[in-house]
Design a binder for these strands. Structure first.
Length: 495
RNA sequence: GGCGCUAUCGUCUAGGGGACUAGGACGGGGCCCUCUCAAGGCCCAAACACGGGUUCGAAUCCCGUUAGCGCUACCA
């Protein structure tokens, strides 16, 4: 600090309190990628700004909420590496506060009792709503004198509490959309407390966000139309609304909201499919958010450092599973094989294969050519037991194309391989040997190599053949090569 | 129907009045490398929804149209 400013003359810079954000899923289903991304954005914002993330389970829909779903959601978040600073808190435990807030609004004349039954409401809707659905509650119960309403309630007549919505501008500066404005007259007096004294979503959320001192509400776009109601509630309750940031939806390939009929939509599905959590997180982060440049692969630290709410896209994004797989492949190829051993072993076990040896060299041999852990495990399984793979169409084509040479060349290779000492079974020595075999018999290198590849993998695609041999091992390789040579002796086309 | 949101290659996006002959990535096509494939490198095709303004100048600002989506419950 220069320019003669002495510390004593400096006004203390008011430090804004660290942000508090929350992720508030309702445990009525699995953790969907949309929810996961909302959670991710909240997490990134909290980490970026030195704030805190509160996890709140909105389980007030008793009918549909289950503990199993809560478990799945928590597991999904953990899998993605999303950690929270408080919670999980359960909204269902705050019923008394919700009710107290509703009654306070009632006492202050900012809400009123409504004795209309569901059936009556239905009838009103049917007659007023000219088939369209432009129904707005006509406030008939607001006209009931307070004493009478209280008496009826005391007598046990069921009633809800409705919020008295004033006709005023309900607007806010959305962190992603800019200014959004609604008019009170376009909304109606919504119910805040059910006849069983439990809160309706909008009240519960506002009541909880106030109590938990949430400063930034980062949530899905589909909540934009709830926001004016919530702002009205904040005002009525005497609190400053938080900053709202509405993130766009995630669509399926057909441009419709992503749903089960698009296939995998739960993060658990991708876990199943062998996607790495880091890749999933990276992909999700870039779906609807951009750091501003050309970056694609973003390590966690960079993601956190670069994240801003302003960088969030306004437009909905289509979930592109192909790009996810590409990204997974990127992570796969840079990840040390050692870190893949556990997930690959798990997958092998699911396939009914018990592998006791060191899997790392096998994983190293195949991971560059794989896009998911499932692919890796499949290829490892083939190398563990070369008699396993069925012939693929390309392998079959090669056999047909080479005719009798296929078997002959295999035989020659096997004979030469037989002479290799176990200690000499290394990629380098094997390459030398194969080259010599080809030379001796006047073969192109490929004509010596490809049959081996097909014999050991059933396919024309693999790591370099010498490495393949090394990884499969001496005994297994030779036995399999002889088997296959014998099988195709005579060179007939595959049946 | 009402209210609201959105609109750049097929997809994810960069872009915030001149740097745009609109950049990158996935996917597609081609070439190189090579025993095959993948990776990698190089190259190609591919977009500012439409119409009006504002401005010397608009992908960028304003208005309208169209289209898509969201909400419109005693669900969340």
């Amino acid at each position: 600090m220069g320019e003669g400013a002495s510390p004593s003359t400096l006004k203390p810079i008011p430090m804004p309190p660290p942000p508090r954000v929350r992720f508030a899923p309702s445990p009525t289903g699995y953790l969907h990628v949309g929810g996961a991304r909302t959670a991710l954005f909240n997490w990134l914002y909290a980490r970026h700004s030195g704030g805190q993330l509160v996890l709140r389970i909105e389980d007030t829909d008793r009918e549909r909420s289950t503990e199993a779903h809560t478990r799945v959601i928590l597991d999904g978040l953990s899998w993605l590496g999303i950690t929270w600073d408080e919670g999980p808190l359960f909204q269902g435990e705050y019923g008394p506060r919700h009710q107290a807030d509703a009654e306070r609004l009632l006492a202050e004349g900012k809400a009123y009792r409504c004795f209309c039954t569901r059936e009556e409401l239905e009838a009103q809707r049917a007659s007023a709503g000219n088939a369209g659905g432009s129904f707005r509650y006509d406030r008939r119960c607001y006209r009931i004198p307070a004493e009478e309403a209280a008496a009826r309630a005391a007598a046990g007549v069921p009633s809800t509490i409705r919020f008295l919505l004033r006709d005023e501008e309900l607007a806010w500066d959305d962190a992603v959309h800019g200014r959004i404005s609604f008019q009170g007259r376009d909304l109606d007096d919504f119910v805040i407390l059910r006849s069983d004294d439990t809160a309706i979503y909008n009240l519960a959320v506002v009541s909880d966000d106030i109590a938990m001192r949430i400063t930034h509400v980062i949530r899905g776009d589909d909540h934009i139309s709830n926001t004016p109601k919530q702002i009205a509630l904040y005002r009525a309750l005497g609190h400053q609304p938080p900053v709202f940031a509405h993130v766009p939806m995630i669509l399926g390939p057909d441009g419709k909201k992503l749903s089960k009929r698009h296939g995998a939509t739960a993060v658990g599905d991708y876990q199943e499919q062998g996607i790495l959590p880091t890749a999933m997180r990276n992909f999700l982060a870039l779906l609807g958010w951009s750091p501003g440049g050309d970056r694609e692969i973003l390590p966690e630290a960079d993601m956190i450092e670069l994240f801003t709410l302003e960088g969030i896209q306004k437009k909905a994004a289509v979930f592109d599973a192909t790009k996810l797989e590409w990204m997974n492949g990127q992570y796969l190829s840079t990840l040390p094989a050692q870190e893949l051993v556990a997930p690959v072993r798990r997958q092998l076990e699911r396939m009914g294969i018990s592998a006791d040896g060191d899997l790392a060299p096998l994983i190293d041999a195949v991971k560059a050519r794989s896009r998911t852990i499932l692919h890796v495990a499949g290829q490892v399984a083939v190398r563990l037991d070369p008699s396993r793979p069925p012939l693929d169409p390309k392998g079959e084509a090669l056999i047909r194309k080479m005719g009798p040479a296929f078997s002959t060349n295999l035989q020659r290779a096997a004979d030469a391989l037989d002479g290799v000492e176990p200690a000499g079974w290394t990629p380098e020595r094997l390459l030398d040997l194969l080259k010599r075999v080809a030379e001796q018999h006047g073969l192109k290198l490929g004509d010596a190599m490809q049959p081996i590849r097909v014999a050991l993998t059933g396919s024309t695609v693999s790591e370099p053949v010498n490495e393949l041999l090394a990884v499969v091992g001496r005994e297994r390789s030779i036995r399999r090569i002889r088997e296959v040579a014998h099988r195709w002796n005579g060179g007939g086309p595959p049946a």
